[in-house]
């Protein structure tokens, strides 16, 4: 009975669902649309859902004042961090799934706890460490600092992927004349590719969204990523919300692109990665 009535009212549920999602995502729409408004339109008594006249000034004006450089910095930091995560995590996850390694449980526990550690615990020690290594005020400091979250996440996420990959595949590859290393590269990596994509995307987004590492370890504003730029702009622009929202929009575009491209894998991976 109930089943039937639900099926029957399917269109109603679809519409309610759609309304929920529209309301829920409306802040993002609001941010993007505000970045195209003029300052006077933002401050008029009745807010407009669609700008009366589309303006690109908030983007054009700011590209001169460092927005382009900051976007580039964000990409440099996030892509480098992602590459480190991928190179380091894939073999480790594979080894923890397939080899008898002493202390494996302890290592996994350590990674799990790493994910729960507050950033503030490591900031002061890393500040001192980076100072002694002479890498304060370089891209390297935030790249290294943001890679740890991605490494822990990726290893915990990828290990079950490797565990569930059929062992017969490796055996066949070994019989075909592969050694363990080439079997890993040629056979195992393609099998767990969906997991690797999620790890790459998530570690990119970790680093892309990081604020405090860059703010703490980089003094030179020329090297700041978008997030640090936003933090600074809030103080500088005050209530020039079209400028601020343009900043936010640019920082959110890669997130949306990645999300749309990988949605199917991401949603599944995020669920698995956060429980494990």
């Amino acid at each position: 009975m109930i089943r039937k009535s639900i099926k029957h009212n399917g269109w109603l549920l679809n519409i309610i669902g759609l309304i929920i999602v529209i309301i829920y995502l409306s802040p993002i729409y609001w941010m993007i649309i505000t970045s195209f408004k003029s300052q006077s339109e933002i401050f008029q008594a009745v807010p407009t859902l669609i700008p009366k006249d589309f303006q690109f000034n908030s983007y054009i004006d700011q590209f001169g004042s460092g927005l382009g450089q900051m976007t580039l910095n964000s990409f440099i930091i996030a892509i480098s961090s992602m590459i480190i995560v991928i190179i380091v995590s894939i073999p480790a996850a594979y080894a923890l799934a397939r080899f008898r390694v002493k202390g494996a449980k302890l290592i996994l526990l350590f990674f799990l706890i790493t994910q729960m550690m507050p950033t503030t615990v490591s900031l002061a020690p890393l500040f001192i460490l980076f100072k002694n290594l002479g890498i304060l005020n370089t891209y390297i400091a935030p790249i290294l600092a943001t890679s740890t979250g991605g490494i822990a996440f990726s290893i915990l996420l990828l290990r079950p992927y490797f565990l569930s990959a059929p062992k017969a595949l490796e055996e066949a590859a070994l019989l075909d004349g592969c050694n363990r290393f080439t079997a890993f590269i040629r056979v195992m990596i393609p099998v767990v590719m969906p997991g690797i994509l999620v790890c790459a995307a998530i570690s990119f987004l970790f680093a892309w969204g990081d604020l405090i590492s860059s703010l703490t370890f980089i003094r030179d504003q020329e090297l700041w990523p978008l997030t640090a730029g936003i933090y600074n702009a809030i103080g500088r622009y005050g209530t020039e919300y079209n400028y601020l929202m343009a900043f936010g929009t640019i920082a959110v575009i890669p997130v949306i692109i990645l999300f749309v491209a990988l949605q199917k894998y991401l949603v599944k991976g995020l669920a698995a990665g956060s429980v494990k």
Binding site: G17, L18, I20, V21, Y24, L25, P27, I28, W30, M31, T34, L205, W208, G209, L211, T227, I230, Y231, I234, Y241, L244, M245, F247, G248, A251, V252, V255, I256, L258, F259, Q263, K264, L266, V267, L270
Partner: peptide, 23 residues
Amino acid sequence: LRGLMMVTWLVPLTVAALLFQFM
């Protein structure tokens, strides 16, 4: 639709902070 909502979880916190400060 459920999957679509996940996008907000990936928005950088700095951006979410900025956006809500405005709203």
